[in-house]
Amino acid sequence: MRRLLPLLALLPALAGCSGIQTPLDAWGIQAARVATLSHVLFWGGAVIFLITMGFLTLAILAPHGVRRAMASHRFVIGAGILFPVTVLTTLLVYSLGLSRALTMPMSEEPLRIEIIGRQYWWEMRYLDLGEGAVTANALHLPRGREVELHLTSGDVIHSVWVPNLHGKMDMIPGRVNRQRLRADRVGTLRGQCTEFCGLQHTLMAFDVVVQEPEEFDAWIARQRAPVPEPQTDELRRGMQVFGEAGCGACHAVRGTPWNARIAPDLSRVGSRATLAAGALPNTHGNLAGWIAAPQDIKPGNAMPAYARSLEGSDLLALASWLESLR
């Protein structure tokens, strides 16, 4: 338990803002439809519940005449069969129509994005945007454009949930599930894994960044380009440490010899808002802390700790270099 104490320090780190992970604040057309449906169900359910409890009260407290009327087959059949059949038939027609509308494609050429769930992080690959259009733990979306998510898993079952955009869809090894959605508002949302996937299922979230289309294009272009040459001694040292410490055996950085896919792509890690799949805000200190002691922050994740093998100054240089990759 003691090694978890650092978690406490991260508390503010875990903080998000209200409304960035809820089905009730729809940022896209799919979520908006389900939100409407939800309100119909909540209020309809509340009314039916109150009616039922009203009947129960009457059955015990009402005057003799009312109770006698309720003590009949007519009452049981009316309230217990006819009424639910009517309500449920209406609901069925409405909900089947809605399901159809939700699964109908809206455009011929959606932007295709592959998301691969792994214990405990996410890999995003933009399938139509050329070589190197890859990122991790941050889903960038152009506003107003329909996207088709291709969801799969590299190990166990995960599930993607960005409630402000759409319901969840599972990532199952050996299968590819597709989900279409459209974000209509610019800003940052939060998504999270919703299928229990092991020890750190809790700390498997990601940021969803909705951008104006031109900003999105610029982001993709930068994402695909090789990372800039380090400009200062410290940054050069940081890049060197990256190689010496063997980070490249698991991580990729575009424009360098390191292109492994075992762990998150770090090409533009400095531009991300959070680290370790939404576990920490991305600051210089957190970055260094994560490299030094990832098993204290997120026990059971695949990243080894470097607190012992790296000198303090090297650790900071490495963090600085990674932070400079924007």
Partner: peptide
Amino acid sequence: AFFASAGFVVSIPSGLQVFAWIGTLAS
């Protein structure tokens, strides 16, 4: 769609029992 409909149908016998109990309490 098939399973959703089945889910609606199964709620009817439970509802029926609830009202049979309420009716019995009234009788």
